[in-house]
Computed example of a mutant assay.
Amino acid sequence: MVSLEPFNSPVKVRLLPRPYHIRAAARDQFSFNGRTITHHPRVLSASTMRPTTVQEKQERFFAASHFAVIGVSHDRSRPASKVLGWYRDQNMDVIPVHPREKRLDGLHAIPSISKLPSPSTTALTISTAPYVTLSLLKQAHALSISSIWIQPGAADKHVVDYIQANNLSERVIWGGPCILQEGDHIIQRRWFDETYEGQSF
């Protein structure tokens, strides 16, 4: 709690916790005499902005309207198949991508990410061999896919070099945990932030 005294009148100002949700990431909220005041900081240039954290990239990923998974097969023990099942359990709009299969896990499949109905609002999960991942990244970059999560084991030095050389670090998650490890926690956090955004505790 910080006390300020403008015009010789004590005023209590309390900084509320900044929500994690991506929609609230660029603003601070203050409780001022019982009113909530939102401060919008000036936009910084790309050269002066701090790097996006992994948590912020995860929040952006799950803020997408649609999801797609590459690496799925009829073998439900495969990591990508488990990820697809997790999306279904969350009632998310998800589509599997497979070059030959027409349906996977009861869902209509598409042969390529070029067939995605809305690439710019789709978050892509990749669980493939690194050389395939590199090819997919190039396609995803050309399609302006909004966010990409590369699962453990699907990236190598060539993949990382491509991400960094093409300024994709802001929207690609790699080198970290699997969605199956982080997903539930992120979804719960987003629900809490959306439900109680702007409220004081």
Rank of each mutant, 00 (worst) to 15 (best):
I173E: 03
L44W: 05
P41C: 12
R42N: 00
H185L: 05
L16S: 05
T36C: 02
I186L: 13
K115L: 03
A154K: 11
Q90M: 11
A46Q: 14
K157D: 06
T128C: 07
R190W: 01
E101K: 15
A24F: 11
A26M: 12
S144Y: 00
N166C: 02
D28I: 09
V132C: 01
P99T: 06
D193T: 10
D193A: 08
S169Q: 14
G175M: 05
A140R: 13
E56C: 01
T53M: 06
L16M: 09
D93R: 01
A109F: 15
G176D: 08
Q58M: 14
D105P: 02
V13E: 06
Q29H: 11
V172K: 02
S120C: 08
K82I: 07
T122L: 08
V13T: 09
G153E: 09
G85E: 06
E59C: 14
Q90V: 10
A80Q: 03
V43P: 01
A46R: 15
P117M: 01
S47M: 07
S77I: 09
A142S: 12
H141Q: 02
L107Y: 04
A154E: 10
G106P: 02
R35T: 10
A25S: 13
P19C: 00
A80G: 03
T38S: 04
W149V: 04
S144D: 10
G153A: 09
R14C: 05
S127I: 07
K12T: 13
S65L: 07
F30G: 04
M1N: 07
Q90R: 12
Y20L: 10
I70K: 05
K115T: 08
V43A: 08
R76D: 01
